[in-house]
Amino acid sequence: MIVRVIYEKGDKVRFLGHLDIVRVVQMSVARAGWPVKMSEGFSPKPRMDFGSPLPVGVAGYEEMFEVVLTEARPLDWLARTLSAQFPSDFRIREILPVPPGRESLSESIVASVYDLDLKGVEASALSRAFDAFMADESVLLEITRPKETRQVDLRPFVLEALVLPSTGEIDRPAACSPAHAGQDNTRVLASMTVRHDRGRTIRPQWVLSSLDRYGLVLDARETIIDRRKILLEQH
């Protein structure tokens, strides 16, 4: 039996990196007593697919992983046992059976929708910068990682970048909603939809960092970023 677990990586655990999430989820599943299938070989690993990694600092409320079980279990049993073992600020949204013979989770992700909560910028300035970004053909950014530096063209990955009206609450779960938004006029909420191309994608933070070329200078590290949704390929 293969199941897909849709869960929330909440606000307070946003600073966990992808490998941390994998470790925490694997240990939680072990404590929950799920009969997880192990891989063959020298050092067997639980057979799990974590889809699309979230970087340190980003929360997500429709994250997913898939796990192969050695025997079938009722979905409500799975939900109950795992809920009891998840650390605080991890929440199960839904558990679904996965039909066999379907392509891997990571391959079937086509886009991610992010919410951005920026401080110290004007909505109009951000909006202009987004428009300029979208109007460009290519936006190259140098990404520095501990081991390598590479150039990425951000533009083709961004499907949409919008400033949201500051009045009116956005529909999102309480755990991820920024407190007091709207009371602060240098606080702007935005949304960004980013494409995944066979596992490859970009981070919204990179887009924010690239906006200086359109006259908007901000410290992208101060932006609160949440992934609202993962869009999967429809069959």
Partner: peptide
């Protein structure tokens, strides 16, 4: 805190919430 921790290495060192 959450607006600032993104600037330090391994911010989860400072957020607790352990099992």
């Amino acid at each position: 805190l959450r607006r600032e921790l993104g600037k330090v290495e391994k911010p989860a060192r400072y957020t607790g919430g352990e099992i």
